[in-house]
Each structure stands twice: as structure tokens, then as C-alpha cells.
Design a binder for these strands. Structure first.
Lengths: 343, 343
DNA sequence: CTGTTAGCGCATTCAG
DNA sequence: CTGAATGCGCTAACAG
């Protein structure tokens, strides 16, 4: 007669609950809970009965309840400044591929390169009680730092290495990379090396600083051949900025672009205008996106292991969550990919 | 003497709770709850007191508890077959930009083009009690369909239009797009039109079907000039497949690639080998990624409004969640971008 | 190995 | 407009 064991019921999602499964299997609720999380803690016999009941009823555990009871959400918050940028897409791919099999879910947010948005998002994310947080770069405000520290959640700052990690830090030194590329161009014999950048987020700024330091070391004017724009990166912008800078300084023989998109745009423009690359003008970029090796001439660039950086970032978090103690800071390194555009 | 109103405390995150704020402000917990969600339901006086208490204590609401009590999570689950693919990155960008300001959080998962993984992910996602689900394409298994329908959650299938939407559906017809491009090539005077595809997911397959139907209509052999690979798309693969197909059929005068990456790889290869595009060989792609208009010669391709498709997809969900009744199906349309590679 | 009891923090219901 | 009681579904702690 009592088909409905649920008694009161003012509310309720109507979904099958742990109690339903327990009733069906003729055991206590907690036993079902254990059978699902630590099967070895439950006798073979009960486990089978429970598994059957779970399947028959189509039970899906309620994460919110689980989170509330155990204060473990299995959620990792990821805050990126852009999603359409291939660099972050690859990073995200690596992060997800590492988290997913470990049973963690990825909650994503886009700050659009705005510090203000980033702070709001962090607030929003903290409300979710994430088990871990991944943020981009090392330039959060002091207030944000405090907020994050108080949250008491493992954090990885990714993409870029800094002196004072909030907690853990995975990335590369964009300053060192900017220097390395400039040095390389010098070694190749170029003497009038320009720098072209767009959007100029913190990482681009540090690449530029690397360029300027290298120029200074060689006794060159660090500002003369620099042209930056606050606009967003695009192929067209690369072409336009190159045109401007070269028109102003005809002696320029090499251009270091703050990313591959700009550099490729410049190469395409050279193709159209019949400028020989690298004979008349050497060109190099940053990131080593897939097209860098495909275009003609192929593009010299700084290669960074984006996907692996993502995996490493996530792994740091997992290590901490599983009680292992790893390094606080990991330099995943970069390398100069020497290709046709700077032969 | 009783500084700690919290009595038992075996557990507890230690974080500030609604009750703490209520005590501080000298009101009931529910009043604080209301002051945060519907400020106009609370008198000015109390609201000010409460706001102050919230700030002083640094209160952050606990989403899990909120979700459990209200069965509203404000989470939208998004399942994509790839994250590194620029098409999905842009789609995601649009989705996120629409959901974020509306107070919804995006939970992301990558099925790696695998139906099996997709099913597992859906299971995992349902455990989160999302308020809505976005999945890619129209080819889920019958079992998955049932599962999703039983969940009773608004769903949008995105990217591609189908006859039998699970719930809501936003996208384009890839078949029609494949036909349209093939027709266009015919109109341009090409007579030996090949098709080259990679990965051959469902949408690429439908583009191919569009090509084949158009070929048949013109009395052409629909299979003779087709070459597909199950490998993942890459620039290099585009070059290789082109080389193979052209070697086999020297009479081919136009190639329709299932995406821009393959097409661009082919164009770069032509540049290297001195093949005139489009004079000797016309080339076109699919998606209209940013580089399509930048490369030389610029690439004819099918343009699809990825970012807007993302926004529309998310908006459909929001409309439903806010009780508005919108259309079940939205065709966001495509267009042929005629550029230099098929002049 | 299994069950009982008691809450996790919030929002719903209903009463003032 | 405000509050008290109650339970959302699950798991930690302890007992058996």
C-alpha cells in the first residue's frame, strides 16, 4: 500500500535519491553511499544488490548534496582572459584532459583581459566552493590575493612565472623569452630589429621588456623601433603595423612580433607586396601556433608547450588535492623555433 | 558568554554563513537571504544593516547549499567534441558571454569526438543538476536522448540543424552548405571538382553529402574525386591529401576542403610548389577562420557566425529558463565568402 | 562490514 | 515586511 516511501514532500526534485536506492536494495543509505565511493568497503553481496538497484532506478547522485555534506565539490575553477585565443584553448584542453579522468569538473570563466571582471569572477567562483582554482598570470591586485588566500583553496597561477607565487605557479618567463628571441636575431646578423605588439597584456609587456633589455645590452636604442597597439591582435593589424613601422624606419631588417598572428599577417602582406622574407625583412613571432610551421616561408617563433603546460597546471592541483607535496613553481620552458622567416 | 552561537560543530567549512550575518545584523537568516536576492522585499533600514554585516564578515554564499535548498544551480553544462578547435572556442566564447552576465556559470566538458565519452560526460553533468545543457550536433544515441529527456532540463543542440530536435536546436545545415559551395564552384566554371576531408565527424560527413548531391545533380561521379582521412585535421594533412588526390587525377581544377585548415595547408603547399591558385587549381574551405581572409591568395570559404551562434544558443536556454517561449529551432545561416582562391 | 544519528547552509512554506 | 520551523540529499562520526 505504501508505494511512496517518501513521507512529507513539500518539495523535492522528484529525482531518485540515495534513500530510494537503499530501500530498494534493502540496506541503509550510508551503505549505498560507500558502495559508490569505496566499493571495497562493502561486501560483495551487498555491492551487487546495490549496483543493481542503482541501475534499475537510474540513480544519479546529487552533487550539491554531496558538496554540502562533505565540503568537496570536485570543481576546479578556471579563469582565463580570453577563450577564443588559441593559446588559451590549448591550455584549457590540457587542463581538462588532466582533470576529467580524475573526476574533477571544470568551471570556466572569461575575464576579457579585464582586472575588474577578473575580481568579480573570482568572487563568483569562490561561491561555488571550488576544490581548486586556476588563474592566468601573476598580476592580480593585492585585494584579490588576500581574497584568494583567505579562501584556503589550492591555486595555480599559470602561463607565466613570477617571483611571489600566490600558491603554486606554472609557466614560462616571458621576459626571458623576449630576450632570447632578440638575442637570436642578433646572432643571425640582424642589426636593426624592431618590435611590434598588440593588446599588450602583461605577458606581451614582459616580452617587450625582454626585447628592450637585449637591445640595451647591445648598445641599441630600445625604443626607436618599437610599435605597439592596444587593439586586439589580428592578422590585418600585423600587416598594418608592419607597414607603418617600416615606412618610418626603412633600415629595419628584422621584426619581432609579440605573437604569431601579427607575424603571419605581416608575412602575408609581404607576399602581396613582393617583399622578400627573410632576405629583405626577417620576421618572427611568438607561441608557435600550428600555422607557424605551415606558412611559406615558415615562421620563426618562440615555442611554448601550451597543452603540456595545461596538464602540468592541473596536475599540480591534483597532487595537492591528493595530499602529495610537489614543487611550488614549475618552469615548463620555451624554445626558439628557427624557421625560414629568419634564415 | 556564548560568543559562539554555533553549537555542536563536528564539521563545517569554517566559512561565514548566512546565520552569522543574520546574527551580526540582528535579523533572521531568511531576511538576509531575501536582502541578497530580492532587495526590494526588505525594508531600507534592514537592508543597510545587512549589507554592512555582509561586507564586514566577508560573507560569500554557499552555492551548494543554495542549490540543494532551491534545486537551482545556475550551472549550464556545455559538452563539446573539441576545445582546441577554433570553431568551438568561438562558440564557447559566445555562450559564455551570454551566460555570465545573466548569472549562470559554465561547466565545460570535452568528449574528444567520442560518443562513448559523451555519454559518460552527460552522466557526470547530470549529477551536477545543471539548469541547462548545451551539446554539439544532433547525433546522440537513442539511449542518451532518453537520459536527457528524463532529466527534464532544457537542452540546446548546437552547431547543426536536425529534423528531430531533442528540445531546442540552433545551427546551420551542413548539408546545404556543402551543396551551396559545390554549386558555387560549378557556377565559377570548374568542372572537375574534388572534395578533401579529415576527421570526418558527422558535420564533415554532411558537408560531403552536400557535395555528392550537387555532383549527382550535374551528372558527375560523386565519388571519383573524393579523398578523406580519419586523421585529425592539420595544415600538413591538407597539403598531403591534396598532393595525393591531384597526383591521381590531374584533371582536377577545384578542391573543396572540409575545413579551412586543410585548405590553407593546401594553399601553402601550392605556394611552395609554384602551383598557381586559382588559375591552375581553385581551393576553398569551410568555417571562415580569421586567417582565411588574410592569407595570399585569400581563401574562399563558407562563413558561419560562430560567436553569434554561441550567443543564440545560450539565449535560447535563458529564454526558456526565464519562462519565455522561443522558437524550437533557429537557423543562424551561412554564406559563401568569395575570395581570391576561386576567382 | 553495516547502521544510526545528526547536521552541512540555505530557501521554502506558512504564520505573524 | 519579517520570522520560525523544516527539509533538500548526502556523508562524517561514532557505535555495533
Amino acid at each position: 500500500m505504501d508505494q511512496k516511501p517518501k513521507s512529507s514532500t513539500r518539495r523535492g526534485s522528484g529525482r531518485v535519491t540515495l534513500a530510494d536506492v537503499a530501500a530498494r536494495a534493502g540496506v541503509g543509505a550510508i551503505t549505498v553511499s560507500r558502495a559508490l565511493k569505496n566499493p571495497q568497503q562493502v561486501s560483495e553481496k551487498l555491492r551487487v544488490r546495490i549496483d543493481r538497484a542503482v541501475r534499475e532506478l537510474g540513480y544519479i547522485p546529487n552533487q550539491a548534496a554531496r558538496a554540502l555534506a562533505s565540503s568537496e565539490t570536485k570543481i576546479i575553477s578556471v579563469i582565463f582572459p580570453s577563450l577564443s585565443n588559441a593559446v588559451f584553448a590549448d591550455l584549457l584542453d590540457g587542463i581538462h584532459d588532466c582533470l576529467q579522468p580524475a573526476g574533477y569538473r571544470t568551471m570556466l570563466a572569461n575575464s576579457h583581459y579585464s582586472e575588474g571582471e577578473e575580481e568579480e569572477l573570482i568572487e563568483m567562483m569562490l561561491a561555488q566552493n571550488p576544490d581548486g582554482i586556476i588563474i592566468t598570470g601573476i598580476d592580480q591586485s593585492e585585494q584579490t590575493h588576500q581574497r584568494l588566500k583567505r579562501a584556503g583553496v589550492p591555486i595555480v597561477q599559470t602561463m607565466e612565472l613570477g617571483d611571489n607565487p600566490l600558491d603554486m605557479n606554472v609557466g614560462i618567463s616571458h621576459l626571458a623569452a623576449g630576450r632570447a628571441m632578440t638575442d637570436y636575431l642578433f646572432e643571425q646578423g640582424y642589426r636593426h630589429i624592431g618590435f611590434i605588439g598588440a593588446r599588450m597584456d602583461k605577458r606581451s609587456q614582459r616580452r617587450l621588456r625582454g626585447y628592450r633589455e637585449a637591445m640595451l645590452e647591445r648598445g641599441q636604442d630600445p625604443d626607436r623601433y618599437v610599435l605597439t597597439s592596444l587593439s586586439n591582435t589580428s592578422f590585418q593589424l600585423g600587416a598594418d603595423l608592419m607597414t607603418q613601422l617600416v615606412a618610418r624606419h626603412g633600415e629595419i631588417d628584422a621584426l619581432f612580433f609579440s605573437n604569431d598572428d601579427l607575424a603571419a599577417g605581416a608575412i602575408f602582406e609581404c607576399q602581396r607586396r613582393g617583399i622578400q622574407v627573410p632576405r629583405q625583412l626577417a620576421i618572427c613571432g611568438f607561441n608557435d601556433l600550428e600555422f607557424a610551421s605551415a606558412i611559406a616561408p615558415s615562421l620563426t617563433t618562440v615555442s611554448i608547450p601550451r597543452y603540456d603546460m595545461g596538464r602540468t597546471t592541473a596536475q599540480c592541483l591534483l597532487d595537492r588535492l591528493q595530499g602529495r607535496q610537489g614543487p611550488r613553481q614549475i618552469d615548463v620552458g620555451f624554445s626558439i623555433c628557427r624557421r625560414e622567416s629568419t634564415l
